[in-house]
Write a protein that binds this DNA or RNA. Structure first.
Lengths: 168, 168
DNA sequence: TATTGTTATACTCTATAACTATA
DNA sequence: TATAGTTATAGAGTATAACAATA
């Protein structure tokens, strides 16, 4: 059974017999799977007036527990983006009344980002739908396969992170 | 052993005991792995004066075999982007002398995109380095694990594609 | 001096729409 | 009418740099 990725590998084997394209099969499928999954998740978010980055912020606040308050630095670390990018995400969410920014009385430099009742309601409304989509995406995999997949992906993530920090 | 994704799942289990966040563990690791891998690949491409989308086009042309000629529609299908996006990728590559556009004498609407000798040389120079990076990213996985991972990812990709086309 | 957070700015990538030309 | 391809344009998202304020 030939899928598009297998056909690509065959082309390479014919054209460049000296090189082994096997790794492309795994990395290629990783990219394609991630991108297809992303599209499905985006559809779900859109139904709730959200996108992945907005949901990301709201979900981080929600799962942090009462009082649903996190600093921008923590949000940046969590999402692996710059604090400037966080500030712009927050501007959008603040305009919509989904989060608000408070001063930190103990540290004048710092800001508290807090989920508003509207923001909490929205993320709690989107969450079950989001999880249903994720469950559907995994629907063909047994529990054992899912556990295995999580481990394999975790391994790649770790390797990729170490590769990066290995270059000074 | 707790990784960041496990901590996120624990937070959800505490905050929303009614919902099962397990699918987030797999989908979350898929996104993170893909994004970390993408960063590593980008570093390699950069060393050769390329980025992922440019490499993508050049590689498609190269592996198509002599005369290294493909139409924009085929490139769009292959990369899963619009033909307008392809035209803009081609403009960049054409300015750099890495591809050229010819008319199709048999169909006046159609264009042939051809790899120049410079484009061929560049992609052939980048290819071994690119594969070495991919191999390094998979370095901790046995051959069996890699085969398994390819199957699991293929399964998710298929499910995601069917989910999408299932909505009319 | 280092940290927190923001804005201004520029960059990259994409899709949509409008258009030309050919089949 | 449908297909191939292009440009113009706008939108989304990011990072870098510069800055203000506080630690």
């Amino acid at each position: 059974m030939q899928d598009p990725v297998d056909r690509i590998l065959d082309q390479w084997r014919t054209e460049m017999p000296g090189i082994d394209p096997t790794p492309m099969g795994i990395i290629g499928r990783l990219s394609r799977a991630a991108s297809a999954v992303e599209s499905r998740l985006a559809e779900t978010f859109k139904r709730h007036g959200l996108d992945a980055s907005s949901f990301d912020v709201l979900a981080t606040l929600r799962r942090s527990g009462s009082p649903f308050r996190v600093t921008p630095v923590a949000l940046a670390r969590d999402a692996m983006i710059s604090t400037a990018a966080v500030a712009q995400r927050l501007n959008k969410l603040e305009k919509r009344g989904l989060i608000l920014r408070d001063e930190n009385p103990d540290d004048g430099r710092s800001t508290f980002v807090t989920l508003t009742p509207a923001g909490k309601a929205l993320v709690e409304q989107a969450l079950p739908d989001h999880l249903a989509t994720e469950r559907a995406l995994l629907g063909n995999l047994s529990t054992e396969d899912q556990t295995l997949l999580a481990h394999l992906l975790g391994n790649i993530f770790t390797t990729a992170s170490e590769l990066s920090s290995a270059r000074p």
